[in-house]
C-alpha cells in the first residue's frame, strides 16, 4: 500500500507587513539591501487575538471544504507548532472539536520548527501504510511574530505567520510518499531559541529586560533569538549532505527529480543551497516574496502555490527538505498525486 499527499490548503493571516511598513517604522533598516538578499517583500502577521491554532483551523477548514475524502474517514489529526495556545491541553484536541471531526479521531501536538512538515509526513506515512489509519490530517502552523521583538531586524524581516493543512492517505494513483532521511543535533539548541516563558525559565520582569546587541538589534529573553551565522553555517553544511543521503537511499539521480521544495527560509540561503548541490535554478522552488519564512508551513505552502501555478503536476517527483531550529532536519521524496 502506498501513502500519498491527497491535498494541501493553507491560510495566511489578513494583516500584512510590507518592507515599506518596516522602513517607516525603522528608518535605519536598509530594507532594499535586505530584500535583495532575502527576496522577501512582505509577510503576514497574526492579529493580536489570533493564534497559530486559529490559522491552522482556517487552513484545515479550507481543506475539508474541498471534500478530498469524507471527514469521517479522517482518523488522525496531528498538529505541529512552536507557538502553542496553551501548555495544556493539546491544540489538536481543540481543533478536533472546532473542525467537527468525530471522536474516533486520535489527536496530538508535536513541537518542531522548520523541519516539522517532513516529520509529520513521516509519521503520517507510517500510520497509513501500516494500516493503523485511513487518513491523517496534518496541520503545521506557527506565529513566530508573537515572539519577535519589533526592533530585532534579523528575525522580524524574515519570518511570517502562516498555516498549512495536508491530508495524507492511501494513494491508488501515482502519488506516493517515498523514503526519508532525518537527523538531529541538539548542540544547536541555543542557536535559535525563545529562552524564557517555559518552565525552565518562567517569564519574569528580569526576562523582559531588553538588550540591544552590536548589530543594533533589540530583544529580551522572552523573545526569539537567532544566531544567524550559526544557523546559516549549520544549514549550508547539513542540507547538501542530507540531499545526498536521500538520493543514495532512494537510488534516484538528480535528473529524476522534477522539483526541489526546500523549507522556504529565504532566497539567499536557497540559492546558495541550489548552487552547492548543483540544482538547476528552474527546479528549485523559491517562494518567499510575499510570505517570508513561515516555519513548518513553508514547504506545504510552497508546494500548493506551485501546484496552483501549474508548475507541479500529477506524477512529478519532488524532493522536500526541512531544516532549522533544534537543530533538526529531514528530507523525503514525494510523487505528486
Amino acid at each position: 500500500m502506498h501513502a500519498g499527499i491527497l491535498g494541501i490548503s493553507f491560510y495566511l493571516p489578513q494583516r500584512r507587513e510590507t518592507n515599506e511598513d518596516l522602513r517607516r517604522e525603522n528608518p535605519d533598516w536598509r530594507m532594499d539591501e535586505l530584500y535583495e538578499k532575502s527576496g522577501i517583500s512582505a509577510r503576514h502577521v497574526a492579529g493580536d487575538d489570533e493564534t497559530a491554532s486559529d490559522l491552522g483551523y482556517n487552513a484545515a477548514a479550507r481543506l475539508l471544504h474541498r471534500s478530498v475524502v469524507p471527514p469521517e474517514e479522517i482518523d488522525y489529526l496531528i498538529y505541529c507548532t512552536q507557538s502553542p495556545d496553551h501548555f495544556l491541553p493539546s491544540a489538536a484536541c481543540v481543533l478536533q472539536k472546532r473542525l467537527g471531526l468525530g471522536t474516533h479521531v486520535g489527536a496530538f501536538d508535536y513541537n518542531l520548527g522548520c523541519s516539522g512538515f517532513i516529520y509529520g509526513l513521516q509519521i503520517a506515512k507510517s500510520m497509513v501504510t501500516s494500516g493503523v489509519t485511513r487518513n491523517v490530517l496534518l496541520i503545521t502552523a506557527d506565529t513566530y511574530s508573537k515572539f519577535i521583538h519589533a526592533r530585532d531586524r534579523t528575525v522580524r524581516t524574515l519570518f511570517g505567520d502562516g498555516a498549512a493543512a495536508t491530508l495524507i492517505g492511501r494513494s491508488d494513483g501515482p502519488g506516493r510518499i517515498g523514503d526519508f532521511v532525518v537527523g538531529t543535533d541538539g548542540t544547536g539548541a541555543d542557536k535559535m531559541i525563545v529562552p524564557a516563558g517555559g518552565l525552565r525559565m518562567p517569564s519574569s520582569p528580569e526576562t523582559a529586560d531588553e538588550i540591544t546587541d552590536d548589530a543594533d538589534c533589540t530583544r529580551s529573553k522572552d523573545n526569539l533569538f537567532m544566531d544567524g551565522p550559526a544557523i546559516f553555517s549549520f544549514v549550508i553544511t547539513t542540507v547538501p549532505r542530507t540531499l545526498k543521503a536521500l538520493l543514495q537511499k532512494t537510488g534516484l539521480s538528480s535528473d529524476d527529480v522534477d522539483w526541489y521544495v526546500y523549507h522556504q527560509a529565504n532566497k539567499y540561503m536557497l540559492e546558495h543551497l541550489a548552487r552547492r548541490s548543483k540544482i538547476p535554478d528552474d527546479k528549485m522552488i523559491i517562494d518567499v516574496e510575499t510570505t517570508g519564512n513561515t516555519v513548518s508551513a513553508s514547504i506545504p505552502i510552497a508546494i500548493q502555490r506551485s501546484v496552483e501555478a501549474g508548475k507541479i503536476r500529477v506524477g512529478h517527483r519532488l524532493v522536500l527538505v526541512g531544516f532549522g531550529v533544534g537543530y533538526s532536519w529531514g528530507a523525503c521524496d514525494v510523487v505528486w498525486e
Binding site: E33, T154, A215, G228, P229, S233, I236, H272
Partner: peptide, 21 residues
C-alpha cells in the same frame, strides 16, 4: 552587516570547501 557576514561564510563554504559548522 549581518547579511554580509553570512555572505562571507558562504564564500568560505563555496570557494574553499572547508566545513563552516
Amino acid at each position: 552587516d549581518s547579511v554580509g557576514h553570512l555572505s562571507i561564510i558562504a564564500t568560505i563554504d563555496e570557494e574553499l570547501g572547508i566545513p563552516v559548522d
